[in-house]
């Protein structure tokens, strides 16, 4: 196995408050890793650094064989658009767009023409069991439906890495399990690496490996054994 993601001594502070203090982590290609830890431990910040959303103050981030912490804003945007997918807890759908347009958004931003982008987006509605919701807007979807739309959007570009931050945090346990089943199943089918931030043990159980973040450091196996 080769490393899909690697963090080396990553440190990041928000003002005076340190969020990460020399975090190290290697995620192998195709691996599903659950990042766990108490509130404020820095697990989401680590995910944001690995995904090129935040730039660390110190340390290095490597993704898919290339160092990304020294890329500029536009290059990191392109990386997120073309190679990564995202599923967050809430607030990730564009309210003005329909569900299918939301799913097609990464493709449209990448320059794919409208019709092919929507066609590819629609394929995911069937796969994720949300047929018939294509024309609805985010406000007309239930929490579980919105999360499946978000998952479809995260996967439509066939990303190499899927980042999921508390993807079931706003869902009841039954819906949460359905979403997790779909997420893991789809990711495995695509061969995508998954970094899953959660504080729920039953969600973490879907992962191949769990790591623990405490006080801004990765404290339990940073490398797959």
């Amino acid at each position: 196995m080769s490393a899909a993601l690697e963090a080396r001594g990553v440190a990041l502070s928000f003002g005076e408050t340190p969020a990460l203090r020399g975090a190290d982590l290697i995620v192998e290609t195709g691996e599903i890793v659950a990042v766990m830890g108490p509130s404020g431990s820095g697990k989401s910040t680590l995910l944001h650094c690995l995904a090129g959303i935040l730039v660390p103050d110190a340390g290095e981030i490597h993704a898919l064989g290339r160092r990304i912490d020294n890329l500029n804003e536009a290059e990191r945007s392109e990386l997120r658009r073309d190679r990564f997918g995202f599923v967050f807890q809430f607030g990730q759908l564009v309210p003005e767009l329909t569900a299918e347009e939301n799913v097609a958004l990464p493709l449209l931003l990448g320059g794919v023409r409208r019709e092919p982008a929507l066609r590819r987006a629609r394929e995911w509605f069937g796969r994720l069991g949300i047929d018939g919701l294509e024309r609805r807007r985010s406000g007309e979807l239930s929490g579980g439906q919105a999360q499946r739309v978000a998952l479809a959007r995260g996967l439509v570009g066939e990303p190499a890495v899927l980042f999921a931050d508390e993807p079931t945090g706003a869902l009841d346990s039954f819906t949460g399990e359905q979403v997790m089943d779909l997420l893991v199943d789809s990711a495995r089918r695509q061969g995508a690496t998954v970094v899953l931030v959660t504080h729920e043990a039953r969600v973490a159980a879907y992962a191949d490996r769990e790591i623990m973040v405490r006080d801004g450091r990765v404290t339990s196996p940073a490398v797959a054994s």
């Binding site: 959303i53 804003e73 658009r81 995202f86 990464p106 931003l109």
Partner: peptide, 10 residues
Amino acid sequence: AMRLVGATPR
């Protein structure tokens, strides 16, 4: 949300 899925600032 658009930036998250890769829209550039431009």
